[in-house]
Design a protein around this nucleic acid. Structure first.
Length: 422
RNA sequence: GGAGAGGUGGCCGAGUGGUUGAAGGCGCUAGUCUCGAAAACUAGUAUAGGCGUAAGUCUAUCGAGGGUUCGAAUCCCUCCCUCUCCGCCA
């Protein structure tokens, strides 16, 4: 969330930012009105509490001397009543203010293009080559079925649509990719983490899945827990409500986890094969950094993710997302899309975002500057490096042979232990 | 799941209704001393919010929330968490 003091002092800029995101401006005015009401009550009640504290000390002094304090105590009886009333009035105002603040989105960074359609996203780089072959490339769902390496029908039987089963060399290939991604992340300075796969309400609120994205998560209602839609949630919450030393920054974590997504509202769109599933594995990068350096870190993380695709020899492009395509909590975002040679389309395999202080303020993650001084809010970033299913799809399609087999790219040989599938 | 014990500042630990934001110790920071270091000594050392240009000042916070009281770290209630034992279990 944004700092209420910032909203107070820059109401115009905040409204403009909310508009660019295509969100409702009314929450800004509501927050400002509640803040004003809150401060009004606060000033009254704190004056009374100050009086009460002074008189309490006086009562104590008189009693210790054996003097009669009953007149003061009688006076305080009505003051106490007044305080009770004001405190009772304050609580709902503060609760509403917090709720209103949670509904104000993060501001887009100045370098983010305006717009709210895919056409407004800027292609900032395109790298790698399409396979040059003289036969018709099959889409991955035909390959995986022919090779019996990913089984959708049985996944549907076991659980439901969108829960594929990786089998044999399919499972081995996926595991090889995960290990490759994690090893690469480690050599680039990320500490590996294996986090919980369910999170509580506070964690889901901290990264922004709650309060209004609840329908995208699987809920374990009995225990008030949520299956993680991305490792971002447990990993970023690792230092929630803590104050780090400046020298601990930047914090760099990587984690491989399953991701569970209901994908409500997207039925029928790009659901063929591995294009969109309810459970998938993903290696995620997370950084907590000094506020002055987060945009440099964003570029570094983009390079971290790009390098993986380069090493696997696939064609891809980088998109700078427009304001309207930014998530609620994001200030700036790049998407990496890999070329699906069998479908002749781009598939999003990574999303790299700077949240600035937006998530960190919700999570109350701060650092103490070197040499002391007031704690400051850190900046948080995360990026996929990478999402597995669409990478598997692109690899199968890119490296297929005329005989319907699939060659394993050289970078993975030491991880798979085999060089061909089929 | 059953029984018991406990949650106080960065850490340890005192404190059972009255100047206790909280003794004492450790740690940390600065200073004195020293060629330097250690030791010793002195001082400082939480977070959030309100008002204020600022200095500052006021309020809140002793796991969380509620209650009793003129006044709560201290008394009462609910919840959460940790530890020990029993049961169950990968």
């Amino acid at each position: 969330m944004l700092d209420i003091k910032y909203i107070r002092d820059h109401a115009g800029a905040v409204r403009a930012g909310v508009r660019l995101k295509g969100e409702d401006e009314s929450s800004v005015d509501e927050a400002l009105a509640l803040d004003e009401g809150r401060r009004g009550i606060l000033q009254k009640v704190e004056t009374l509490k100050s009086r009460r504290n002074t008189v309490s000390a006086e009562v104590a002094r008189m009693k210790s001397k054996g003097e009669d304090a009953s007149a003061l105590i009688a006076e305080m009886r009505s003051v106490a009543e007044e305080i009770r009333g004001l405190d009772a009035a304050l609580a709902p105002v503060e609760e509403k203010l917090r709720a209103a603040l949670l509904l104000i989105p993060n501001m887009p960074h100045a370098s983010v293009p305006a717009g709210n359609t895919p056409a407004d996203n800027q292609v900032v780089a395109t790298r790698g080559e399409e396979p040059s072959v003289d036969f018709k490339l099959k889409p991955h769902w035909e390959l995986m079925e022919d090779l019996a390496i990913i089984d959708f029908a049985r996944g549907t039987k076991i659980t439901g649509a969108g829960f594929p089963v990786y089998v044999g060399r399919g499972a081995q290939l996926e595991r090889a990719l995960v290990n490759f991604f994690l090893d690469e992340a480690r050599t680039r300075g990320y500490t590996e983490m294996s986090p919980p796969l369910m999170v509580n309400v506070a964690s889901a609120t901290g990264t922004g899945q709650l309060p209004d994205k609840e329908d995208q998560m699987y809920v374990v209602a009995r225990d008030e827990l949520f299956l993680v839609p991305t490792a971002e949630v447990p990993v970023t919450n690792y230092y929630r409500d803590e104050i780090l030393a400046e020298k601990q920054l930047p914090v760099r974590f990587c984690a491989s986890t399953p991701c569970f997504r209901r994908e409500a509202g997207s039925y029928g769109r790009d659901v063929r094969g591995l294009n969109r599933v309810h459970q998938f594995n993903k290696v995620e990068l997370v950084r907590l950094v000094h506020p002055d350096r987060s945009y440099g870190d964003l570029e570094e993380m983009r390079a971290d993710a790009e390098l993986l695709i380069q090493k696997l020899g696939l064609r891809y492009r980088v998109l700078l997302m427009c304001a309207g395509d930014l998530g609620f909590t994001q200030a700036k975002k790049y998407d990496l899309e890999v070329w699906s040679a069998g479908q002749s389309k781009w598939l999003e395999v990574s999303s790299i975002s700077n949240f600035e202080s937006y998530q960190a303020r919700r999570m109350n993650i701060r650092f103490r500057p070197d040499g002391g001084g007031k704690p400051e809010i850190v900046h948080t970033l995360n990026g996929s490096a990478l999402a597995l299913p669409r990478m598997v799809a692109a690899l199968l399609e890119h490296y297929q042979t005329p005989e319907g087999k699939v060659l394993v790219p050289a970078a993975l040989h030491r991880y798979t232990g085999f060089e061909i599938i089929g």
